[in-house]
Write a protein that binds this DNA or RNA. Structure first.
Lengths: 214, 214
DNA sequence: TGTTAATAACTGACTGGTCAGTTATTAATG
DNA sequence: CATTAATAACTGACCAGTCAGTTATTAACA
């Protein structure tokens, strides 16, 4: 009796894109954009390399799609939290920074983006401009709005907004980068959560109207 | 009349290593470690690729030599500043962070290291461990010592040292990374110097004994 | 309802190009 | 003229993107 020929693959037009994106994010996270092999992405997605190109025209397009699907929704959620918030600016800022910090220290896949961008911006300027416009400027705008709200309400001392907005996120981004670079070799370091909490505490203390530092 | 055969190259055993290192740092800075071509390094050093291998056994060895020659001396200088300092811990910390910030925002070549390490640590774990041991832990140890000095003197409130040491340098590293990734595409951003100054101000204000933040 | 023609999802071998590291050879120097 | 710094051609491995061919699925028809 002739063996029934095993089914070698299935048509799954709907499910492919998401599976490919998930696989791509994992491989990009582990190896970086340039060093990631599309063969590996395909293998992880359970598909052949040719199939990748049925759904995404290039490696770069794959990356842009990832930013839109994985990063942007979180930023949009943060914007709506800010819009809905009714308490003080310090409270809102604490909430935004803490949840950003938790998100990025608990979620391996999200933590990959800062590393990917920092690492590859130089060699893929188009990707850098895309990320800057789509994510970074938008995040800075959100933070700046909260800072201004706080100054207007007399909660925060007057400040250089652009510089301070960068300082609000810098340590959180730093921890995300750390997680994807040195954390694997660093057994002594403090838990990322602790660093984030300490940052929020220190940052808000510095922002508050009151004693001068020197 | 026979043309005098032009001299095609010179023997310069002493000068080569430094010239090669300088060229390598430039190329690594511009393209990252993995994407840097040794052909480019050689060309920039005015030498052929084979010559590189007379002086350095591998691309990785080239990088380690760079860390030892370019990064370490600055760290060692900072340690001796700290040892010699006779004023308060806040003063010393301000001085260390400011000069670190100035160094890294004014010196293109030094600013390259954080980017290189963050970008390549995943794919070159041996390099990551080397940098962690040789540079990062040593820098954390220095900052921690200053923080402890400040707490002992009653200048700073008690704290989690490991977390706070990371927060002291995080924004400065962040600016170095920014400089090598997004700065080229970012016309609006504040001057790095301003961000560093603002960080030092904010950080020291947060550290000081006094009002609680909430 | 079983057979077959048409379609489109999917495969994987291949191409063209890149680059770290090697080696046979050449030329500067003492 | 022996030594060795330096060259440049070479090798082998790697990988993004392509495309001719294969197979699952659907639709038309008997």
């Amino acid at each position: 009796m002739p063996k029934p020929p095993p089914r070698r693959w299935r048509r799954r037009k709907e499910a492919r894109p998401d599976e490919i994106l998930a696989a791509a994010l994992d491989v990009f996270r582990d190896r970086g954009f340039a060093a990631a092999r599309l063969d590996d992405v395909a293998a992880r997605a359970g598909v052949s390399k040719g199939t990748l190109y049925l759904y995404f025209p290039s490696k770069e397009a794959l990356f842009k799609a990832l930013v839109r699907e994985s990063v942007l929704p979180n930023l949009i959620r943060a914007e709506s939290v800010a819009r809905a918030h009714r308490g003080g600016a310090a409270d809102l800022l604490r909430e935004l920074l803490t949840s950003f910090g938790m998100l990025i220290t608990n979620n391996d896949r999200l933590a990959a983006f800062p590393k990917l961008m920092m690492a590859e911006a130089g060699n893929f300027p188009e990707l850098a401009r895309f990320y800057l416009r789509t994510v970074i400027y938008r995040a800075f705008r959100l933070i700046t709005a909260v800072l201004k709200r706080g100054v207007a309400a007399g909660e925060f001392a007057p400040m250089n907004y652009a510089a301070t907005a960068r300082l609000a996120v810098a340590p959180i981004i730093f921890m995300a980068l750390w997680r994807n670079s040195f954390a694997a070799h660093d057994r002594r370091g403090p838990a990322p959560r602790v660093v984030v909490e300490r940052h929020v505490e220190l940052f808000l203390a510095g922002l508050a109207i009151g004693r001068r530092s020197s």
